[in-house]
Computed example of a mutant assay.
Amino acid sequence: MTKSVPAVERAFAMLEALDYAKSGMNIADLSRKLAIPRSTAHTIALTLERCGYLTRDASQRNCMLSTKAYMLGRDAVRPDRMAVAALRPMRRFSTQTLLTSHLAILDQTQAVYIQKVQGPGLVSMETYPGKRTNLHCTGVGKVLLGYASEGFRTKVLSRGVFARYTRNTITMTSLLREELRRVAEQGYALDNQEEELDIRCLAVPMFSVRNEFLAALSVSGTTQQIRDNLIPALVARLHHTARIIAERLQSGVDDAE
């Protein structure tokens, strides 16, 4: 097997790490997270910055992805048939609930958003089609992991410990396995401030008309917007919207707006 280039692997690892960091990361943090020498992290960051893929915040301390980096894969994430079929039902859902909706699929060991409709409220979700996110601490991720093949689920759970983002993040395999069991039993997943404090996310599986698992459909909002007493109604709306999307996909609807 042809050897890979360590410097290239580290550069892409740095880009992926910064994609998750909402406020950017400094060189010391990147060095610790990626387990590489600080001088190496500095050199890679400087190279990426000179190529236009990184920028600095106002303090010049934190590195962040540039617009060029975000635009790099825009053609690769053009809405596919599923995203197109989902757009109108998701717009209707978000208009009725005043909340943001997402459609995500599984890609390797992460979830990838393929469609998003921002709710009309004041709270804006920092997501976009093509953005990758974790499986263990998001609503869509738990659904995608919970309804994936047993072999894939075993592979992911074999990691042992998962990254912590808030005090609510599930980091232990045993607890995540129990969480996935609940997802299967109740037919939906809840991200209860596990990726970001004060934000909740509900997600349901979307099946084809032949009952094949396709994707995860979710709704996101603040803890005040998604209160416990509202969960049953929101889950029912999500399931209804998922069925409509599947029917539109089956009938070949192509009405991107």
Rank of each mutant, 00 (worst) to 15 (best):
G121Y: 00
I27G: 03
G130S: 10
L157C: 06
A35R: 11
H102F: 05
T127C: 06
F93C: 02
A83F: 07
R92Q: 13
H102D: 01
V84L: 07
V112M: 13
S31N: 05
L65H: 11
S31K: 09
V123H: 10
D57V: 03
L87R: 15
L106H: 07
A104D: 10
S31F: 10
A85E: 11
G119Y: 01
Y113R: 09
T95D: 14
M125T: 11
T133H: 13
A76T: 11
M82W: 06
T109V: 07
M125P: 11
G146L: 08
V84T: 15
L54T: 05
G160R: 14
S39F: 07
R88D: 07
P89E: 02
Y53W: 13
I44L: 13
L103F: 04
S149F: 03
G130P: 12
D107P: 00
E126A: 03
C63Q: 15
A111C: 09
K33F: 00
P89K: 04
S23G: 01
R56W: 00
T40G: 01
K68F: 02
L34M: 02
L157V: 09
R78V: 03
C51H: 13
L145P: 13
A69S: 14
G73H: 12
Y128D: 02
M25P: 03
K33C: 00
D57Y: 00
L65Q: 11
L122K: 10
F152A: 00
G160W: 07
R50T: 13
S31L: 09
K131E: 01
L157P: 14
M25S: 03
G119F: 00
H102S: 02
R61N: 07
A83N: 13
A85C: 12
P129S: 02
G73E: 11
G141Q: 12
A76E: 13
M71L: 12
P89R: 02
T127H: 07
A41N: 08
F93S: 01
K68T: 15
A58K: 15
A41L: 07
S66W: 05
L46C: 01
A83G: 15
K22D: 06
H102T: 13
A41F: 08
F93Q: 01
H42W: 04
S39Q: 13
K155I: 03
I105K: 14
K116E: 08
P129L: 01
I36S: 01
R92A: 04
C137S: 14
Q96P: 01
A69M: 14
T67Y: 03
A69T: 15
L106E: 06
A21E: 04
K131P: 00
D29R: 14
N134S: 09
D107Q: 11
S59I: 03
R74P: 00
R50F: 03
T154K: 15
F152D: 05
G73P: 10
M64W: 07
V77K: 09
V84H: 05
S66G: 06
R132F: 08
A41Y: 07
A83C: 09
A41S: 13
T127P: 00
V117N: 09
V77M: 10
M90G: 06
T109Y: 07
M125A: 02
R88Y: 06
L135F: 02
T67A: 08
K22L: 04
Q118R: 08
S31Q: 08
Q108V: 10
G73A: 10
T47I: 09
G160A: 06
P129I: 06
L145A: 14
S66D: 05
T43A: 12
R132E: 04
